[in-house]
Structure formats: structure tokens, C-alpha cells
Design a protein around this nucleic acid. Structure first.
Lengths: 359, 359
DNA sequence: CTGTTAGCGCGTTCAC
DNA sequence: GTGAACGCGCTAACAG
């Protein structure tokens, strides 16, 4: 009975409703949108006809075409949905965007980077798009959107013309962490970084690999640490998870020259690093200092007071959302740069050498 | 310079491109879609004209209207984005949906329940919609979608006509957990439940409250436990988080008649419960047995081997996605019921009374 | 292989 | 207050 329905009930039209109500289509339209002047009587007639025909109101597709707006804002994430949402920062950012554009009646469309699906970027009816920490290789997608006149906001993306930037002081913040470690007396610091490319490889960073990095944020944070420790090495993780931090730390701490401190590029990685250290019998911070990045609320994850840089993820999202609204309104908003805040936790201390020297 | 652009460069049309290329609009259309037979020569001409006009290809809004499809599948979540994604089960489900519909070239539109935003449900150009564990009060939204001919899939939603059900054996699974506790000798069991309504109140459940519950899943799980322990009381939490489990357990364990076991309706709640118990000096499972629900990978959260029911969240999502595709293809797929699997962890043991009795 | 015709469902003039 | 006419951008169906 749910078949093609043959000739019965061809989904009703505004025109059909208008005809039944004995008015013109435009009048019926006004009756629904409530915009123009329509007598209560005819309005009632139209609504009655609609009810009789089981008409649910104007077709959104027609409205989109006519208005030139779909009421949809795209959000481009790297990787799959689940991978992207494993990171609380992404969720907070998304929430911020949602919070900002919600009042305008727009909804968020999830677009993933990796998928070269048939209809991916090219054929999606979006009014604007937000890039969340996407890799460099999105350049062509950016071009398509720009050409189409779709406003683009980039959160922590490489600066590009036609992309409104909502950025974070990644380099400065990382430098700040490195300085903290240096001031404590550390000289031997190793990084555990976020992913550098799409295949999500894992392993020790090489100059070549770093050079062709597609991870803007990761590269910025590496640069910040290198500002202080130019020779520090880096182990590239494949994702921002506790598990990856754990795996990375096992390798880092097994290397012949064990560092006295590890700079993890996210709090989740840092938690994994600490777990690995403890498992290897290293006390944090006495045997090993660890710093993170993000300022995730770890309440539910681990009872650790991490030394880290707290970044305003929700505010970043809000700013991106407001940027979208401004661009859609035809304004020319300026990009924004957000600052992270240093949080001194209980995971950093002077290295053994410094302390033994003092004794 | 980003002004109204006055008369300059009125975003190019298919028609404009066709005109410049000296062909008809339909030919130009074919040149882009690649569908019909077009000589390479004219195709090149069209593409050249497009490049000259800086035309990025057919407007998705026009395509949507013409095809009657927007390539967008809506996903209705309760609460805000961040709240919904705090629960790993929702993420896994979303990932499953994404995985299933991705190949079809569709993308996911995030719709939140609470927002009565201007354009919310009524005016969104979606081809189908998936309800994820939404509260009962979505009934009218369901009506609108159904009226409009938008296929609806409901994951763990109250059975409704015109909604394709993807359900979980919540009641049976909860009964299974309760039986496990009963078999261990427990008689005094209290529940910590998921939220029962939109305001997300917290507190001891009353018969009236349970009766007007809008949380289908929560109610089913309560019923499952009551099948075994008819008199068991329930403390309603306001969300599925570790924090909420902690808060709930503090109240439950402070009550005059402390239970020997707690049935938490999610693993996150269970972890919070255990944390509270430990803080109160109660050993798990010796002083208190705790069971959860979901089978979340706790690796990154806590080193606890929880006794729980493992549910196939990703598979549920996949099934929902496949249901969407089938419905869009005009088929009449059957609803699905997924089974949870009992996992015996290390958080349950016979109650003190039983053990002391044996000695 | 290409052009012509005819809408898809709706919003917006501008007259009446 | 109302209705006729037109256009939004694209495409299926047919004719040539």
C-alpha cells in the first residue's frame, strides 16, 4: 500500500491548495508565510483547503531556490564523524557554532573531508561553510566554495584569501609551555604531536615529513616549541586520543635518550603519555614532566591536574558562527585571533638533574 | 569592494554559460552532469565558457528543486550538540548512519530537539530524517515529516506508525542485568537512570514522574529491572555523564537504606557511581555491586572492567542509515531489533550479607 | 548528437 | 485585499 500510489494523492501543491480554496497561488503563499496582507477569511479558507489536502506547507526546496538561501551551514571536519568527535575540542567548537547560528534558524550540515562521495562539496546546498582545523589539501574545495560565492570561515586553518580566519595562538601558546619547562630546568624535551596528514601515519617526525605536513595546528605548535628548544624531536601520533598518547609515549620513553619532559599537543595525548609513564615506573612529575594543550575538562577522564594551555573552544566556535552570520549579511567582518591561557597543574617539576644538583 | 557589486558580475548562470558557449541550456547542463551524450568538442566549449565566466557548476538549490532531492538526511538529537555528543553511544550511532548513507552521497544535517528556532523542522530541505533516542514530545514533528512524505527512521523511539523502528532490547537487557544481581544474592537494588524529560531534572523518581516520562529508553530499562525487583527505587540523573553518576550515587548511598547494588543506565553513569562509592569508602564490588549499560570502551576513561550489557551502537546507526536508503528507494523495509550482549566484569559480587552468611 | 519546450514549487512585483 | 504574470536555475522528455 506504500507502492507508487499510482494516480492517487500526488503530493499536494501550493497551487492545488490555492485552487481548492478558490484563490490564487500568491494569495495562498501569503497565507502561509504570513508576510503580506491577507484577510482572515481567505487565510482560513486556505488553511482549510490545506488541511483537506493534507498539505504540510511550502516545500523547503522551492523556498531555497526562490530565496537563494537554504538555511544550511556546512561544517567540514577531517576524518570520519566518530574520529572528529573523539576530540572534545571539536565538540565544543561545534557547539559554539551551533549556538551562534541557531537563532538565525540555520542548521549544521556535517561534511567530512576524506569522503570523495558523489555529491560531496560540489553539490551541497549550503549558504556558508566552516572549516574546522582542516588540512591544507582542502585548498581546491575552498576554491569551489569561493567561486560559488559561498562564504567561508576557517577555524585554525592556514591563512587563505577568501577565508575568514578564526585562529588560535598555537605557536605562542606552545612557546609558553616550552618556556615553562625551560625555566624549570629542562633541556631534553620531546613532543608528541597531533596528526600531520590524512593517512594518519604514526612515528618519529623527519624534516621531510614536517615539511609536507598538512596539519596547520600541529605545525604551529611544533614551531612554538622549537622556538625554545630548536633541537627537540617529535613523535607524530595518528589522532588526539588517550590511546595514541599512550602508544606514542611507550616509544618515546623507550628511546635511548629519554627526555625529561614531554610536550603533548593535546590533553588527551598527555593523559595517555602519563599513563604510559606510570606503567613504566616513572613518576610524574618527578621523573618526567608532561604538559598538554586544550584545557579539556578531565573530570570524567582522569583525576589529573594537567599543566596545559586552556583554549576557548566554545568561544572560537561562536566567533565562527558569528562570522558566518556577518558574511551572510553582506558585511566584511575581520578575522579573529584567540588566546590560550596558561594553567599550572601538577604534572611539571624540575628535572632530576636539577634537583640532584641542588642537593 | 565586497559590496553589492552593483551591476558587475551577477553570479553566472547555466544559461549565461550556455549563451557564451553558443549552445542551448540543456546541452550545457548535460556537459556538466556528464549524463547525456555530448560531443567532446561542445563539452570543451561549455567548460571554457564556464571558466571564462568563473562559473562553478550547477547551483545545488536548482538541482534540489528539479530532482526533488536535496541529498541531505536530517538527524534529530535531543538537547544541544555538545550534550548529545557527550555520550559516546550517540557518536557511534551517528558514525554508523554516516557510514551507511555516505556512499549515496548524502550528508547529515544536525537538528536539535529543544530549539524551536524559526526554521527548525518545518522548513528544512531534507530527504529523510533519523530520530536518535528522542523524547516522546517529538510526536508533532513526526507528523509534519510524515505529512510531507519525508521518510522517518527512529532509533530507540516509542513505536509510531510511519516511523521505521531501529530498536534495542532495552527491557530484556536490563532484566538480564537484574537477574545477574539477583542470582548473586542481591535483594536491595537501586537504579540510577537516564534523564526522563526535557528540563533534565534530577532526583528520586516518583510514580507520577515515571508515568509522564518522555524518555523511552530510560522507561524501558526501568521496566526491565522492575521485572526482577518490582520494588526497586530509581534516582533520575539529568544526563549520561560520569559527573551525573557521581552526583546521583552520593545521594543514593547517603539514603538511610543503602542498597547492595546499583544499576546504572549507562556506563558513564556507572563510572561516576563507582567513583562516588570509592570516595565514601565503599569497595566495589565487595561493599557495592555496580552494573552499567552500553559497553563503552572505557580505555580512555577509567581502568574499570564493568559488568554491563554491550550494545551495538554502530550497527544500529548503520541499520538506520540503510533504512533511510531503502525508504528513499521506495522500498518497505522492516524494522529491526538489536540485541545487547552480557559482559561479566569485575564490578559485581555477592552482597556482604550472603558472604557473611556462608562463613 | 543537439535544440526546443515545458515545467519543478515558490516568491514577488504590479496592476486591479 | 487580491490575482495575473513572471522569474528563480535547472533538467526530463521529446523532436530534429
Amino acid at each position: 500500500m506504500d507502492e507508487t500510489a499510482s494516480t492517487e494523492a500526488p503530493r499536494p501543491n501550493l497551487a492545488a491548495v490555492a485552487a481548492l480554496a478558490g484563490v490564487s497561488a500568491s494569495t495562498a503563499s501569503l497565507a502561509f508565510s504570513g508576510a503580506g496582507p491577507v484577510s482572515d477569511a481567505t487565510k482560513a479558507k486556505v488553511l482549510a483547503a490545506a488541511a483537506q489536502l493534507n498539505y504540510a506547507g511550502p516545500d523547503p526546496r522551492g523556498q531555497s531556490l526562490r530565496r537563494g538561501r537554504s538555511g544550511i551551514v556546512g561544517v567540514v571536519l577531517e576524518d570520519s564523524v566518530s574520529e572528529a568527535f573523539r576530540d572534545p575540542m571539536n565538540i565544543a567548537t561545534l557547539d559554539g557554532i551551533s549556538d551562534a547560528i541557531g537563532p538565525s534558524g540555520s542548521a549544521l550540515l556535517l561534511l567530512t573531508d576524506n569522503a570523495e562521495g558523489p555529491s560531496s562539496f560540489r553539490s551541497v546546498p549550503i549558504d556558508a561553510v566552516v572549516l574546522i582545523g582542516c588540512s591544507t589539501r582542502l585548498a581546491d574545495a575552498v576554491h569551489v566554495f569561493a567561486q560559488r560565492g559561498v562564504p567561508i570561515v576557517g577555524i585554525e586553518t592556514e591563512p587563505m584569501p577568501s577565508v575568514l580566519a578564526v585562529d588560535l595562538d598555537n605557536r605562542l601558546a606552545s612557546r609558553r609551555l616550552a618556556e615553562h619547562l625551560r625555566d624549570l630546568g629542562h633541556r631534553d624535551v620531546t613532543m608528541v604531536t597531533l596528526s600531520l596528514d590524512a593517512p594518519h601515519a604514526r612515528g618519529w617526525a623527519t624534516p621531510e615529513w614536517e615539511a609536507r605536513s598538512e596539519g596547520y595546528t600541529a605545525s604551529q605548535r611544533i614551531a612554538g616549541v622549537r622556538d625554545v628548544f630548536p633541537a627537540s624531536s617529535a613523535f607524530v601520533s595518528s589522532a588526539s586520543t588517550v590511546d595514541e598518547g599512550y602508544r606514542a609515549a611507550l616509544e618515546v620513553l623507550a628511546s635511548s635518550e629519554r627526555p625529561t619532559a614531554i610536550v603533548a599537543q593535546s590533553d588527551l595525548l598527555a593523559v595517555g603519555v602519563i599513563r604510559a609513564a606510570q606503567e613504566l615506573g616513572l613518576a610524574v612529575p618527578n621523573d618526567l614532566s608532561v604538559v598538554g594543550f586544550d584545557g579539556v575538562r578531565l573530570d570524567g577522564i582522569a583525576p589529573i591536574d594537567l599543566t596545559t594551555m586552556v583554549q576557548p573552544a566554545f568561544a572560537k566556535g561562536r566567533a565562527a558562527g558569528e562570522g558566518v552570520l556577518a558574511l551572510l549579511a553582506g558585511e566584511a567582518p575581520a578575522g579573529q585571533l584567540f588566546d590560550s591561557e596558561f594553567h599550572l597543574g601538577a604534572t611539571t617539576a624540575p628535572p632530576q638533574s636539577a634537583r640532584t644538583a641542588h642537593h
